[in-house]
């Protein structure tokens, strides 16, 4: 056994010496191609209109023109919409996490009459078409007196992600070793203490995962913020601002690129912060 391993070792290391270079080269080439649209957008956002046409597919600007950003920032009222979007995204993430973590926990780790029914209903909504009119939801919000407030956007946005989040948390909690819970119960911890003090802290990676997915959709949403802030356009979000901006400046290509970068940059930053957690989170959820 050792003899074989000993004989094989030089071969493997030779392969690994040459291998990584090829792998890295391929990955880098692929990555550059994959990110080319981003690079081109970023570069074009700094071009003048003449440069935009003159340089064509070359993403690098000749001399960076930063005024595009100032113009886009003001033109699309991004300043006013930025805080709305941050607030909506944060609140939507918090609500979604609370609602789906608690639901996912009890569905994974407790038994109660009616659980099977809950699971069937939740699963069925994945397949059934979601209504093609906003009117039922609009009427509910009107009844609650929440129209034209950021809360209506947050609630509707959060409800859109509960099914997916609940399933992910269910999978994650199911994979956590039961002995931890049992030990805490022996120590006299009650239901709430087990969840808040033991299970929830253990689910950090999943919180990051669901949080990230929720943040992406909340940040980019367009129609819901548009409809629920009809009477108060100052409550709009970046997504709505961007849409209007596209409509108003459809031939101001460099400005459009700058606007795109402004809307994308924060969500990319969030992703960069959370990304190292979230593959682990998903790994936990798929572990059976």
């Amino acid at each position: 056994m050792t003899a074989i391993a000993g004989r094989r070792r030089p071969l493997t290391s030779a392969a690994t010496r040459r291998g990584p270079w090829v792998t890295h080269l391929l990955l880098l080439l692929g990555g550059i191609a994959w990110l080319y649209p981003f690079a081109w957008t970023l570069g074009s956002s700094l071009k003048s209109t003449d440069e935009f046409f003159g340089r064509g597919l070359n993403p690098l600007p000749g001399s960076p023109l930063w005024s595009n950003y100032a113009e886009a920032w003001q033109g699309a009222s991004f300043g006013a919409y930025f805080l709305n979007t941050v607030f909506i995204t944060v609140a939507t993430v918090v609500i979604t996490l609370l609602v789906t973590a608690t639901a996912g926990y009890v569905l994974a780790r407790t038994h109660f009459p009616g659980k099977a029914l809950v699971l069937v209903v939740v699963a069925a909504t994945v397949f059934l078409p979601h209504g093609y009119t906003i009117i039922p939801i609009f009427d509910i919000m009107r009844g609650l007196g929440l129209l034209n407030s950021l809360w209506s956007i947050i609630i509707v946005q959060a409800s859109g992600g509960v099914v997916f989040g609940t399933f992910l948390f269910m999978g994650y909690f199911r994979a956590i070793d039961r002995s931890l819970e049992d030990a805490a119960r022996v120590d006299g911890a009650n239901f709430h203490q087990i969840f808040w003090r033991i299970m929830l802290p253990l689910s950090g990676p999943m919180l990051a995962t669901v949080g990230l997915f929720t943040a992406i959709s909340a940040w980019n949403s367009f129609f819901i913020p548009l409809v629920f802030t009809l009477a108060r356009p100052e409550l709009r979000t970046l997504g709505v601002g961007m849409y209007a901006f596209i409509g108003e400046n459809s031939t101001d290509w460099t400005l459009l690129c700058a606007g795109s970068v402004i809307t994308l940059a924060p969500i990319i930053a969030i992703f960069l912060v959370l990304q190292r957690f979230f593959i682990n989170g998903l790994a936990g959820a798929v572990k059976q």
Partner: peptide, 23 residues
């Protein structure tokens, strides 16, 4: 002034009337 730069102007108007917040 609110300029609705979307092809949904009629829908937005209808929803605004519905919620009693028409301009």
């Amino acid at each position: 002034k609110t300029t609705q730069v979307t092809d949904k102007y009629p829908d937005l108007m209808a929803l605004a009337v519905r919620s009693g917040t028409a301009p």
